[in-house]
């Protein structure tokens, strides 16, 4: 791609203070993200994936290294957390329109937009449900709708489907892929599923076990739009094998 990167990370390291000299979570990461990229970090548990997203979202400061955004300003971010992170005291509708409330958008306009998002993620009829009454998959869909509603420039997805069963998860891949194509967002996603990263991403970066370090990069040249059966194509299998070997 020839566009200017929306995000540039240089020599990023994160060390958490602990009792014996600090716990190194991320070690010397450098990468660029361009507008409309779908980048996926693939790494085992504890490789610092969540930490990386929290750094990008400016929730955490790097110990050393730099995180620079285009125009030196953090863009609007939509974040989907490892757990759905819905507010139990808000209905589905009210959870989804939270980002608009924070922008002080007019209530009726916010409801209309939230209704559109509810339709996009296929939750019609559940507007007034409490989070406690949702299944894991429905809750994650609410979280995705909430992350998209304010039309952010950058989506950060932290194992968004980790808590779902295999069938629901694969269904959600197709949904996310469709939403991504429709909305043309820049996405940074972290996961520990090889299939998930290949199905969704343009580029997969493999992280090592703690401390997280980029040890392999893979351009995913599978055609889009990707459908369910792409996972059974020989090329998909070849790429999956490459990633598998990189991890081991």
């Amino acid at each position: 791609m020839t566009t200017e990167p929306i995000l540039t990370v240089k020599n990023l390291s994160v060390v958490f203070p602990d009792n014996n000299g600090g716990l190194r979570a991320l070690d010397d990461l450098s990468f660029e993200v361009h507008p409309r990229d779908f980048i996926c970090f693939l790494g085992p548990s504890g490789s610092g994936k969540t930490t990386l997203l929290r750094i990008i979202a400016s929730l955490l400061k790097p110990t050393t290294g730099e995180v620079n955004f285009i125009h030196n300003q953090r863009p609007e971010i939509g974040m989907v957390f490892q757990q759905s992170n819905l507010m139990p005291w808000r209905t589905v509708m009210d959870n989804i329109k939270l980002p608009l409330e924070l922008e002080n958008m007019d209530e009726s306009a916010a409801r209309i937009k939230a209704q559109e998002m509810i339709e996009l993620v296929g939750l019609n009829g559940f507007e007034d449900s409490w989070p406690r009454d949702l299944s894991g998959g429905m809750a994650q869909r609410v979280a995705i709708a909430r992350a998209l509603i304010h039309d952010p420039d950058l989506l950060l997805l932290d194992e968004p489907f980790g808590s779902l069963d295999a069938i629901t998860r694969e269904h959600m891949w197709v949904e996310l892929s469709r939403i991504w194509q429709a909305k043309q967002k820049t996405v940074i996603m972290v996961t520990h599923s090889i299939n998930e990263s290949l199905f969704l991403a343009d580029k997969v970066l493999v992280l090592t076990q703690r401390p997280g370090k980029i040890k392999f990069e893979l351009e995913v040249d599978l055609p889009r739009p990707r459908k369910d059966d792409i996972r059974y194509s020989p090329h998909f299998g070849k790429l999956a094998r490459k990633l598998r070997e990189a991890i081991e």
Partner: peptide
């Protein structure tokens, strides 16, 4: 902490964090 993360990722003000997260929680 996750609610604070959510609110900060959305650039919520202190007052919004108070009224929309801390009080109801």
């Amino acid at each position: 902490q996750a609610f604070y993360d959510l609110m900060k990722s959305l650039r919520a003000s202190r007052k919004q964090i108070l009224t929309k997260v801390e009080i109801p929680a």
